[in-house]
């Protein structure tokens, strides 16, 4: 029986080192949380697919983690290519990570021009009485970026709070924009992936 392939939507995580991108990724992949920056558990894994049902449609979010390149160097521009959405993460207990948002935003609009952009304030469990980043700060920032931001979320990877809601909402946004886009354009701008020979489908025409 022929199966219809659900197209993946590449969603990338951006933001400063230490704000919790890999923790969000870990929650997304196997719903766990670790306090140590234990690289071992995600070694070699940098993206993961998960299917979301939006109304009568299925949509596959393919979430990408940075691989920690941002620790010292910058992230390669190729990380951003083909992204349908970018989640720019900052930490609610770290105002510096909030103030660097505009740089990350600039990188996204430069290298992933058509990506929808979402903002995620993580570590909401550490917000406390005197927040480092207030709701007013966040609102001002969004206004300054002229509606570039499609959605804002607060999450805690530690408490597993707000995370599924965020991904579900992002899936809805993408399903919405897909619908209008599919009507407008065809696939002709796309290249293809190279796969091992035995996985190559019959569409590669053989001239022999």
């Amino acid at each position: 029986m022929a199966t219809i392939k659900i197209p993946e939507q590449k969603v990338i995580l951006c933001g400063e080192y230490g704000v919790g991108k890999s923790s969000l990724f870990r929650r997304f992949t196997n719903n766990t949380f670790v306090t140590a920056t234990d690289r071992q558990s995600t070694l070699g894994l940098d993206h993961f697919d998960k299917t979301y049902n939006v109304g009568d449609k299925s949509l596959k979010l393919q979430l990408w983690d940075t691989g920690g390149m941002e620790r010292i160097a910058s992230i390669t521009s190729s990380y951003y290519k083909f992204a349908e959405a970018a989640i720019i993460v900052f930490s609610l207990d770290n105002s510096a990570s909030f103030h660097s948002l505009s740089q990350h935003l600039l990188d996204v609009v430069t290298y992933a021009e058509s990506a929808k952009i979402f903002l995620c304030g993580n570590k909401s469990d550490l917000e406390g009485e005197k927040p480092q980043v207030t709701d007013a700060d966040i609102e001002t920032f969004c206004e300054q970026c002229h509606n570039l931001i499609s959605g804002v979320y607060k999450t805690s990877c530690k408490l597993a709070d707000g995370i599924e809601e965020m991904f579900t909402d992002i899936a809805c946004h993408l399903a919405e924009s897909n619908r209008s886009r599919l009507e407008l354009q065809t696939m002709k701008h796309h290249g293809f992936k190279v796969l091992p020979a035995d996985e190559q489908t019959a569409e590669g025409s053989c001239l022999c």
Binding site: R39, T42, L43, G44, L45, D46, G67, G68, M69, R71, I72, A73, T76, S78, Y79
Partner: peptide, 12 residues
């Protein structure tokens, strides 16, 4: 480079 990084390589 990305492959190297996700397998623990450090970039500068």
């Amino acid at each position: 480079a990305r492959l190297s990084a996700i397998y623990g390589g450090t970039y500068m």
